[in-house]
Design a protein around this nucleic acid. Structure first.
Lengths: 190, 190
DNA sequence: TGTACATCAGTGAACGCGCGTTCACTGATGTAC
DNA sequence: TGTACATCAGTGAACGCGCGTTCACTGATGTAC
């Protein structure tokens, strides 16, 4: 096993990013080691540093990839541009590696634990998700913003409690609120 | 420096819990070491295990303490039982060691990273906060629940982004929604 | 109340472990002629 | 097109570090008489 071709190396780099995306979202940035990410690609630890300067450099690129994926998935799943659709997609049971990056990555960027570039990547991705959400919904800004924050909050609590009964009840209330917004929007602009 | 009296030992145990409460809420359970907690009490590492079986045992007791404190603070600050008051108190700028336990402790209990007793302590504390919130507000269950989830979500995003502009805007929308709920409640039952 | 001994809270060094990162090495790929 | 050499992607052991936990030890406190 010697040197890989440039084409193969580029593919391997993508594979590292994809593995990191799955693992970091599923279990959190701080609970996944570089060695684990590399093992998931079928490679060994040392080679990582031929592709990335540090773990945090990988984290930054993974943030961009994850938010981009979430954005695309959300765009596709809510083509009808209705609040109810977007909420339903967001609350759909997903495999761990599709967990919401807003929640999965928050611990790593909270406070001054992480470096500024990484926080900025999170900030940019989160703002993108919010912007798309607001852009697609015709309802009043206030209630749409509240809805967005509520989705994130309820999802966080559900994940932390292993879907406790009261957390599921929160989700239901949010689904109802979204349905209400959708109905109002439809009757306002038919 | 030899053996401490039983009274002193009991005080020291409380001190460990109080220090853990401050440090864990400010920086997260997983970013604070046992040695750091002990240093904050003025003691050395080894003595910790005379009081707690393990770090996770301390974590569990700290959860109970933190949620109890949050509950009491919230009860006092929102004596008027109005949504606007509760939201304002929740969004008030606080020192890091008074950070919301729902958010600060979520990473540690998320998924199967932690043991079941610890998750249960979080679950119980979170449910208590939600129950008090719902109990005090006469507004429709649906919008009150949405409001609660939104507060947590907006606070999480604000903490993660270092109070990004759009996160502050989310908070404002939630404050407006709370004011709206308060007004509706007042006009419904004067 | 005083004395002799047992207890055990607190000390601080040491242990084992997993982590992020480094490094000497290998050999297929890339390049110069 | 073929040959000789340089490059560098990937290997896997090693390094330094911080963590949770253990342990032999100290000496003031607690207890038995």
């Amino acid at each position: 096993m010697g040197r890989s071709s440039y084409a193969q190396a580029a593919k391997n780099r993508e594979k590292i990013l994809e593995s990191a995306n799955d693992l970091f979202r599923a279990r959190g940035v701080d609970n996944v080691s570089v060695a684990e990410v590399m093992a998931a690609t079928g490679m060994t630890t040392g080679g990582f540093y031929k592709h990335f300067e540090s773990k945090d450099a990988l984290v930054r690129e993974t943030f961009d990839l994850s938010f981009q994926k979430a954005l695309a998935a959300w765009r596709k799943a809510s083509a009808g541009r209705q609040a109810a659709e977007m909420v339903n997609h967001y609350f759909q049971k997903k495999p761990p590696e599709r967990a919401c990056p807003l929640i999965a990555y928050a611990p790593h960027v909270r406070l001054e634990a992480s470096d500024e570039q990484t926080v900025e990547a999170y900030r940019r991705g989160a703002e993108g998700l919010l912007a798309q959400f607001l852009d697609r919904l015709p309802a009043s800004d206030r209630r749409t913003q509240v809805l967005f924050a509520a989705m994130v909050g309820a999802n966080l609590l559900a994940e932390a409690t292993g879907d406790a009964q009261w957390a599921r009840s929160l989700k239901d209330a949010i689904r109802d609120e979204a349905a209400m917004l959708t109905r109002e929007a439809e009757s306002a602009a038919p």
